[in-house]
Design a protein around this nucleic acid. Structure first.
Lengths: 211, 211, 211, 211
DNA sequence: GATGAATGAGCTTTCATTCAT
DNA sequence: TATGAATGAAAGCTCATTCAT
């Protein structure tokens, strides 16, 4: 392959990559604004300024376009969390866990579109088994360390991890979806949720709890 | 107005009421199953066995029909909670609060359709100011009692109420929308969320909790 | 039901019947002109002067519209032939058979659109078993009489019936589909085909046939 | 032109020829499978493994590609028949004619794709005059010999030739297009059609024919 | 010679809503 | 009060063809 051919190929693929990203970016906005069903390929094309058919050069269908965005958003969440996990494994487990939970909420509020794709836009169809995402594994690991290193009472790791996820998903999704509710300050609220959830897990003064 | 006329009117309005309720009932099912956009007036009419036009005698538009269902679902949630509040005002405030939180989740899981309309289906358009629903007032009252009667530390009522709501909304919405996630047992999870959230609020030495 | 209601219903159904027939008529023309695939609901609506959606009030889909026309055309062919069969059962069997064959071709040439739907437009998908149409039964009966009453040699009824059908289908379809071929006069050709096919079946003086 | 240039050209044209044939081969299959309209240049390119644009280097349009295949199929039919005609001119004319008719049907059944292009896929648009194909000339010649050598009654050559063609086209097209009809054995049917058609033409013992 | 992204027009179908009856 | 035929707009998607590379 000579250099002219190389440049040709390269330029083409660069342009294609660019177009593809342009589509994804615009689509994310529209999917979040309108929801899956109301989203329209026509409107997307109109917004970008290309023909409808052009979209189908990059994605086989509306569904595939959507799924691509879901994957991308999950991936971003995972990157966001796993960076933290890698950088701070030496910290106090409880501090690290709290930081992890904060980071999760922070990700959602900073990237509400991504959070929509990952958790809010369209539940997986009830038939197919749920694919637990690696992002959840990180949280589970953080919880496990807290319990194994005896910072927490001896509770079931899975139960605690799911309960924590529920709490932070609650605050994240409400803040995103109900921005007009007369919330107290965001930070205060988030702190309260996370502290509430975590503090009662620490080891001393453990009340019995009926199963 | 003589009695014949009255009876006529009365019968008419009874019949009308009946038709209206029949429509609402069928519509709720369809809205939840298909989402707002995919819901179709045609399909609704088909399911009920009436003409499309007939629907428009009772509701001006699809949007109005939807809003009516939202109101209705909020109202049901309110009734569900306020009954509890009225019956058990004399109990220990913390026990009552926990019971209230349980009841909230229970309502959502028993009436997922209503919970969808109240919180999941379509956020109010971000332009209009959020109308805080009386259902939330009940929760706020429960929290206030806990704090005022010194069962809780002296925290901001509003902050605590919102944080508790976030937590239980999280678990409720996840259980409804992700039924295929490999959850630990529902009851265990709900208990964990609620206990986590509440226990850390009590001022000192956590009190025993009845199931 | 009072007379006003009756008239309402009646007028409505008359109008609907009219619209339905108008659609069928226009569709038949277009299907034959363009073929199944090139036929377009849009063009049909345009030709009739109604909205596309209107067509779907009368037929669920393009496919259903097409099938309705197929049924109708088969039915017409059947009526055309069965009348003959009923009226002339007393005739000489061979004469009757020849008349039947002529009538078949005549039907095709007088109603080329119907013949298209019955035999030319779209072969049944190869998967599903072929539904032999009652029209073919009539021909089989005619042949059987010829053989049973010893006007014909003792040949297999089914084989002869199929062979005769093949011959007349050949001439009918060619005359319809290739109108610009320099045919000899239509009548002469049809007579030749039918006489050729039938005459060699009569019982006496059979020439040798090389296999 | 030097030899290098010649070789280059030659190689080029060989390669081009190869590509062209590859396209034609794949296109024939698709046209027959899907019909003219449903056939898609995209799918063709996909199947071959080349770009869409490449097809347009060899053929100006879908229409031209189609017409080329029509020509090719007619040509193949002609070759198939003319070989027979050349090899067996000395035979008994009636035997030769029958063999010719058999061969025609055989060609259709062995090469249904070609038969589709020649006669079934899309009739020539009714406006343009019909170009009688040389293949038909062969049949006419065979018939003429039968009549001129007094094996047949003194009938009009053209009429007889057309009538025979009609009969064998009928059986060929039905067998190809309605494979699921409960046919008697193919060979029996074909023999019956051809014998029926030819036997009644031989000179002696002419039965009366009613109008 | 070959590529494949891009287009504009077209497809079948469904929708919320209206309105004469 | 109730009907349901009709509409205009819009949906997701595919097409034959072009053209800069």
């Amino acid at each position: 392959m000579n250099i002219v051919q190389y440049n040709e190929l390269s330029q083409r693929s660069v342009r294609q990559e660019f177009a593809r990203n342009q589509i994804l970016e615009a689509a994310r906005e529209l999917f979040v604004r309108d929801g899956y069903r109301a989203f329209s390929m026509r409107r997307l094309a109109g917004g970008i300024g290309c023909a409808v058919g052009t979209l189908y050069l990059h994605f086989d269908s509306k569904e595939e376009l959507f799924q691509t965005l879901v994957e991308q958003s999950f991936e971003r969440l995972y990157q966001y969390l796993s960076g933290l996990w890698a950088r701070h494994q030496d910290r106090d487990p409880v501090v690290l866990l709290k930081k992890g939970l904060f980071t999760y909420v922070e990700f959602g509020l900073r990237n509400p579109n991504d959070y929509h794709f990952a958790f809010l836009l369209r539940a997986t169809s009830p038939e197919q088994p749920y694919r637990v995402h690696p992002a959840f594994d990180i949280m589970r690991s953080m919880v496990r360390r807290c319990i194994e290193e005896c910072c927490f009472r001896q509770l079931d790791v899975e139960t605690v991890a799911q309960a924590l996820w529920a709490a932070i998903h609650g605050v994240t999704s409400l803040l995103i979806q109900r921005p007009n509710f007369p919330w107290v300050s965001r930070n205060k609220l988030i702190e309260q949720v996370i502290n509430n959830a975590v503090d009662s897990l620490v080891g001393h003064a453990v009340p019995e709890e009926g199963g």
